[in-house]
Amino acid sequence: MSTYSTSQFKNGLKILLDGDPYNIVENEIVKPGKGQAFNRVKIKNLKTGRTIEKTFKSGEKVDGADVMETAMQYLYTDGEFYHFMDPSSYEQFEAPFAAVEDCVKWLKEEDICTVVLWNNAPLTIEPPNFVELKITETDPGVRGDTSGGGSKPATLETGAVVQVPLFVPEGEVIKVDTRSGEYVSRVKK
């Protein structure tokens, strides 16, 4: 297993702490003129998503977490697991609900997602930044009203609900930014 000294700490480094994988999101050196130096880090638990603060003595060594990100295609869910495939090796992985919980409302079959693998098992899934989804339910808009004045809720094929402009009808495919959950545009088919 790889180990890292605090001098190698930087944002994005994956470390193992008490058996859980963490991602360093902030690293600050605290060094009094006449005292012990410390690295104060903000780390995100990649299993729970919780961010905590920890401080290490500078010079300490910490185990690295065998975590890597791979682009994979979402295949389907069997109700219990969510199945992904590495398009280069055709290797398939099953992710438990906990791994997709935050993004399941954006998951559309065949879309390419980022799968975070820890010890070769999916830990978390990040959806594409933009997805194209069909509106399955929304109030009929006011035809001709393209002023962009108001908005209305629309339910998408994956179950996600987003605010769309009044003129966008049911059955339309729209582009959504998954990071903000906001409507971007209509998609011409």
């Binding site: 060094k31 005292g35 104060r40």
Partner: peptide, 21 residues
């Protein structure tokens, strides 16, 4: 309790941690 992680600190290291961090 205040977020230090690692080996046991000496008396002065512990005070430095509490002061600086």
């Amino acid at each position: 309790e205040k977020g230090y992680y690692g080996d046991r600190l000496t008396f002065d290291q512990a005070l430095d941690f509490l002061f600086g961090v």
